[in-house]
Simulated assay, not measured.
Amino acid sequence: MGEGVDDAGWDVEPGDDIEPVVQAVGRLLKVCRQSAGVSITELAEAVGYGEDMIRKIERGVRIPRPEFLDSADTFLKAQGHLRAFREDMRKARYPKKVRELAELEGRAVELLFYSNHNIHGLLQTPEYARALLEMRQPVRSQNMVERGIAARMARKAVFEREPTPTLSFVLEQVTLERPYGGRMVLRKQLEHLLEVGKLRHVTLQIMPTDCEENPGASGLVEVLKFADGTAIGRSDGAFNGRPVSNPKDLRILELRYGMIRSQALPPGKSRDFIEKALGRL
């Protein structure tokens, strides 16, 4: 049995709409391998991955890494047929909910976020994201943690999109002070916030704890606006936390976010606030 690397991908979630594509890639891999007269053992040794993992891919229960498809395509002389699924498998590696969220964020021209318990996912460093995911209850498997981190980091592509979207973040002061993962993790996270805050299309504001009024007391607020004039939003404290898209409900969320933003520190003072929090670590 060839040892190789076992993690060439993650198991597909049963019932996920990406499952038929993963199964098709598995069948294609098997056809290409058999047509080339190559055994699973030979393929495993050639590409450096475990035999059990390759069997799972061929059965359609394991999502292959894009790099695996590259190596297998070259070795099996598949003429690009396996490599053609690179992008599909890259997206498939992230949980369905994350794929759907990333698709919405990828279309939005304006994104509004208010976070009250921790730094928003789009602003998190890998270390900070790991700390959050590892403290969840019930405990997640290491595979689920790694998958969650990778998915969260992939969503950051929204900052580099063209045309550039407008992003507005309001963070509670306490999110700058809770040392999730330890002081060094928090320090690196605050340094990252300062870097992101320099981007011209990003507005970053802090809501001080001593603010006597805060419309965000009932929970997070998120609103994504699209180029066609439509939008989608949600809030912990409205509509039972469900996403809404009708103008009347969205108006409520936009009004709430507008009040939160008006009562938070302006961007310049917020940057000073973050620098002072960093200096105390």
Rank of each mutant, 00 (worst) to 15 (best):
G121Q: 02
V185G: 05
R130Y: 10
A92V: 04
L133H: 11
K156R: 11
K188R: 11
A129H: 06
E160F: 10
E134N: 07
V185R: 09
S141A: 12
A154C: 03
V98I: 10
P138N: 05
P95R: 09
M135Q: 15
M144G: 12
L122S: 06
N143I: 15
P163I: 00
T166C: 03
R140P: 14
E127G: 01
R178Y: 07
Q173C: 02
A157M: 05
P163S: 03
R187V: 03
V158D: 08
S115G: 07
E134H: 09
M153N: 09
G181V: 03
Q189L: 04
A150D: 14
P126D: 08
A157Q: 10
T125H: 00
L132I: 11
M135S: 15
E162D: 04
Y128W: 06
P179L: 07
A151S: 12
L132V: 05
I149S: 08
A108C: 01
Q142C: 09
L132E: 06
R155A: 00
P95A: 03
L186W: 09
P126V: 01
F159G: 03
E172Y: 09
L133R: 08
G148N: 10
L111S: 13
S115Q: 05
Q189Y: 00
L101E: 10
T164E: 11
A108E: 01
P163N: 01
I149K: 09
Y180V: 08
Y114C: 00
V109C: 12
V139D: 11
A129Q: 00
P165H: 07
A108R: 01
F169D: 02
V139I: 11
K97F: 14
A131H: 02
F159R: 01
R187E: 14
H120K: 06
L112E: 10
M144I: 15
S141G: 04
V174F: 08
P179M: 00
V139Y: 13
L133W: 12
K96Q: 13
S168M: 05
L171D: 05
E160K: 11
L122D: 06
K97T: 11
L123N: 06
T125P: 00
V174E: 04
H117Y: 09
E127W: 04
V139G: 13
E177S: 04
E103L: 00
N116A: 12
R136D: 15
N118H: 14
E146F: 06
Y180M: 13
Q137G: 03
M184D: 15
R183G: 14
L171S: 03
G148C: 11
V109D: 15
A131R: 02
L112I: 00
R140T: 14
P95H: 05
A151C: 01
V109R: 12
G181A: 10
T166G: 04
Y94T: 03
V170F: 14
K156S: 06
E146Q: 14
V174A: 14
R130E: 15
L101P: 01
P165R: 02
E105T: 07
